[in-house]
């Protein structure tokens, strides 16, 4: 841990242009810990993060390239891999769009109007976050499976929901349901409705008011929500695993393919796909950090 140097966070130890007549021992800052304690806390915290987060992440990329770039690219160009990538993109595109429309509508209804049961509605919107992914998949098996409520009827009419794209999209939409709404609701509540009321009183239609007044105000928050929604949609494993049926080349998304290849000891292939997903996660985090900067910037502006 030689990289760790310690400075105090308080201004008390700021620039000191004067030779101090006060013995350094006497500078007992009321708000910080002894140097040794600080060192121990930082070391523990960074070690923990390194072991649990940095190492696994590094391992994904190292394993993926363990047999060279050629092998890596070949693993990705495999038809099964390409099919999984395509399915993941399609699934994410559909479920994110659905939840985007829903999230904006829910945020408008909740943030701009007062009605009874609002707290309950917000709790219900958050519900999927506290449901195990496996259960999120299970509920659709119960609806559309062979022994499910609609399964037999659908099968009789030749409609494939379970073990096909529709169920994969539904399960993904279920687990990503809250992301956009929960980002937008507090943001729009905080901004109030004065600007919209002004626009309406100036004769703008509701739709134009939304496009020209509301949307520009919440665009960073909206992007933030979509970004997180997308990351989860592309990476969802449990829920999709339950409803996909694992049909090779057809109903395997990227995370599912990682599992299959890993279980078949095709480690380079598994980690190559995994590295794409890990890369997606890193990009998501970087964009997220940038968006957070924009969101903070927007803060004082919304005050006046």
């Amino acid at each position: 841990m030689t990289l760790v140097t310690i400075e105090t966070s308080t201004s008390a130890a700021a620039v000191q242009p004067f030779p101090s007549r006060v013995a350094p021992l006497a500078r007992r800052d009321a708000r910080t810990e002894p140097r040794l304690v600080r060192g121990i806390i930082i070391t523990l915290a960074l070690t923990f993060l390194t072991v649990f987060v940095v190492l696994p992440l590094a391992l994904v990329f190292l394993e993926a390239f363990s047999k060279g770039v050629g092998f890596y690219l070949k693993a990705l160009a495999d038809p099964e891999a390409l099919a999984a990538i395509w399915l993941t993109l399609v699934t994410a595109a559909i479920s994110v769009s659905l939840n985007l429309v829903f999230g904006v509508a829910a945020a408008w209804a909740i943030a701009k109007f007062e009605f009874r049961g609002k707290t309950l509605l917000i709790t219900l919107i958050d519900l999927p976050f506290s449901v195990s992914p496996v259960i999120s998949g299970l509920v659709f098996v119960l609806l559309f499976g062979a022994q499910g409520f609609f399964g037999p009827w659908l099968m009789a009419h030749g409609i494939h929901v379970l073990f096909a794209l529709p169920a994969i999209v539904l399960a993904t939409a279920f687990v990503t349901f809250p992301f956009v709404a929960r980002e937008l609701i507090p943001l729009m509540q905080e901004q109030g409705s004065q600007e919209e009321e002004a626009a309406i009183s100036l004769g703008a239609s509701g739709w134009r008011t939304f496009l020209l007044v509301t949307l520009p105000n919440v665009k960073w928050g909206l992007l933030y929500g979509v970004l997180l929604c997308n990351a989860r949609a592309m990476g969802e494993f449990g829920a999709v695993s339950v409803v996909s049926g694992h049909i090779r080349g057809e109903t395997n998304t990227m995370p599912l393919l990682v599992e299959i290849l890993y279980n078949e000891y095709q480690l380079v292939g598994a980690f190559a796909i995994a590295s794409l997903l890990a890369f997606l996660a890193l990009v998501t985090l970087i964009v997220k950090t940038i968006l957070e900067g924009h969101l903070d910037e927007g803060q004082p502006a919304s005050d006046d």
Partner: peptide
Amino acid sequence: FDAIVDIPFALPTAVAGVA
């Protein structure tokens, strides 16, 4: 390190699992 804290949120669970 502050950003790294979010990786378990962002990293697909299957990837975390195999890693």
